[in-house]
């Protein structure tokens, strides 16, 4: 599903975030990206979602060369990817429900169907009772769960999560990891970046370890 061939990402200014990385992730896998902050985990996820383009090498997602993708085609790639951010990137000018509806509106779902799907997604993350609340009134863990609901509401086949449990306490973190496990069991491919080695080892999934932009398998 995802394939990196000798991928290097150098940012303007010369910082090399990723050096000559090659690996493959099969459809239906759940893979952890580990490494301390600044090791290149976020860059790697951004390359998959075409938020950044590689300096060298090729990134292939669903047999499409993402690095060379036309600008106009990128939105359609992203609609098939659920993105989960450490800082949630929620919109505080609208309700919880409206936040979850956004991807469906963008993809052009009919209103009735969109509402049904959004409720289902909120129910899955345990936020259905808060659908009318403003996300600013939610706790950190709830905000992260809302971000997950928004990422999975359009039922993408690939979910990328950047430090999803980064600033949550252990109980919340375990909840969220269990949720990911459940998604994976219904066939969703997950790539989760985390610096929390303990949480990673508890799940026994495949781990891609990064150090200073280099891959250590």
């Amino acid at each position: 599903m995802i394939r990196f061939d000798a991928v290097t990402k150098r940012y303007p200014g010369g910082h090399e975030a990723l050096s000559n990385a090659s690996f493959e992730i099969a459809s239906g896998e759940m893979v952890f990206l580990s490494g301390h902050s600044g090791a290149g985990k976020s860059t790697l996820l951004k390359l998959i979602a075409a938020i950044e383009r590689p300096t060298l090498g090729t990134v292939t997602v669903n047999s499409q060369n993402v690095g060379k993708m036309r600008r106009a085609a990128i939105p359609y790639l992203r609609r098939n990817i659920g993105l989960i951010f450490q800082d949630h990137k929620l919109l505080f000018d609208r309700s919880v429900m409206q936040n979850v509806l956004l991807p469906l509106q963008i993809a052009g779902f009919p209103r009735h169907e969109a509402a049904g799907r959004a409720r289902a997604a909120l129910d899955k993350v345990g936020l259905l009772k808060r659908e009318k609340a403003n996300p600013i009134t939610l706790s950190g863990g709830e905000q992260q769960r809302l971000c997950i609901a928004r990422a999975v509401v359009s039922r993408p086949s690939l979910v990328l999560a950047d430090e999803p449990t980064g600033n949550l306490d252990a109980d919340y973190a375990r909840d969220i990891m269990d949720m990911f496990k459940a998604f994976n069991q219904v066939g969703v491919t997950l790539v989760i970046a985390s610096h929390d080695e303990n949480a990673i080892s508890a799940y026994g999934s495949r781990v891609i370890h990064l150090e200073h932009g280099a891959l250590l398998s």
């Binding site: 106009a72 939105p75 790639l77 992203r78 609609r79 993105l83 919109l91 000018d93 963008i106």
Partner: peptide, 14 residues
Amino acid sequence: REEIEVSRLIGATD
């Protein structure tokens, strides 16, 4: 701005 950035990330066309 935020709305635009988020919309872009979740697949909004120009």
